[in-house]
Simulated scan of single mutants.
Amino acid sequence: MNPADTARVSITVRNNTNTVQRVKTVRISGTALALTFFTYDTTVPFDVPPKSSETRAFPLEPTDLGSQALGLLPVTVEAIDVQRDVIASVETTGDIKGSLWSVYGAFGLGVLVLTALSWAGALIALARRRLPANRWQRAMRFLPAGIGTGLVAVISLSVLRLVAPSPTAEIPFIVGAAAAALLLGYVTPHPGEQMPPSEMDTVRIQR
């Protein structure tokens, strides 16, 4: 899908029921990480007789698509009836020729910045020995950075047109990165206990 070109869309709706299905609108939407980044509704009214199929073609001009999405995204095509109910749908993968500064691209950059800040905060706390003494609390300190790393991987693969976001692709990356971050936080060295106040006073007197 290129914002500079007019797309020619052709759909075939098969009616397996015993009643006429009246299609009013065809909706094309792109979704990633449970978020919808673009939607196009085109009025294409036609009837599909029982136990038969109908094919319709129509032009689609996604002129604003460049500011909405980029890379490989799951795309859903839906046939909607006069009551605004979805009567048929199919899922596919779309190659979106958008901009890095689109909504999806900006979302990915935002996740990248937050992930970098999470890693920086955790590592600085580790270097200054300010992490919690409890191992599981230290592990949880690294968890947001791990989740962010998984999200960055999923979005990057999508933008680079290598793998489209989907549950089968998202879950292994996010869960794997989160598990690695948890393990890293769990095995970090103990920050050490502070000396009791009486010992600290003794040190001050000696000095």
Rank of each mutant, 00 (worst) to 15 (best):
R56W: 03
V48C: 07
A32D: 12
T43R: 08
F58Y: 14
T63E: 13
T43Q: 12
G66C: 03
R56T: 12
G30C: 12
R56G: 06
L65Q: 08
P50M: 00
Y40S: 07
T39F: 00
F37D: 05
S53V: 11
A34Q: 09
F38N: 04
G66A: 03
V48I: 13
S29W: 00
T36I: 01
P50H: 04
L35K: 10
P50E: 05
D47G: 06
T36D: 05
P49R: 11
A57E: 15
A34S: 11
F46A: 09
L65E: 09
S53P: 15
Y40Q: 14
D64S: 13
L60G: 15
T55E: 13
Y40N: 07
L65Y: 06
V48S: 03
S29Y: 02
S52V: 08
G30M: 08
L33C: 03
V44C: 08
A32G: 15
Y40V: 02
G66N: 10
K51S: 14
E54T: 14
I28H: 01
K51T: 14
F58A: 08
K51Y: 13
D47L: 04
V48H: 02
F37H: 06
D64C: 01
L35R: 11
T43C: 03
L33D: 12
P62M: 10
V48N: 02
P59K: 10
E54P: 08
V48W: 01
K51D: 15
R56N: 08
D41K: 03
A57D: 13
F58N: 11
D47R: 09
T63M: 02
A32F: 05
R27T: 09
P59T: 14
F38Q: 05
G30R: 05
V44W: 03
T31G: 12
I28G: 02
K51R: 14
G66P: 08
L60D: 15
T42R: 14
D64L: 04
S53F: 05
G66Q: 05
A32V: 14
V48F: 01
A32K: 06
P50D: 06
L60H: 15
A57C: 07
E54F: 00
Y40I: 03
S52L: 05
P49G: 13
P62K: 07
K51P: 15
V48L: 02
T31E: 14
V44M: 10
F38I: 12
F46M: 10
T36Y: 00
V48R: 02
D64R: 05
E61R: 03
L33K: 00
A57G: 10
P62Y: 07
T43H: 07
A57M: 10
I28Y: 01
K51V: 10
K51N: 15
R56A: 06
A34L: 04
R27I: 07
R56M: 07
P62D: 15
S29K: 09
T63P: 04
P59Q: 12
S53M: 12
D47I: 11
A57Y: 12
P45E: 06
L60W: 15
F38G: 04
P49Y: 06
F38K: 04
P59M: 11
Y40L: 05
L65T: 12
V48T: 11
S29I: 07
V44Q: 09
F37P: 04
D64P: 09
L33W: 00
V44K: 10
P59D: 14
T63W: 01
T31C: 08
Y40G: 01
P50C: 02
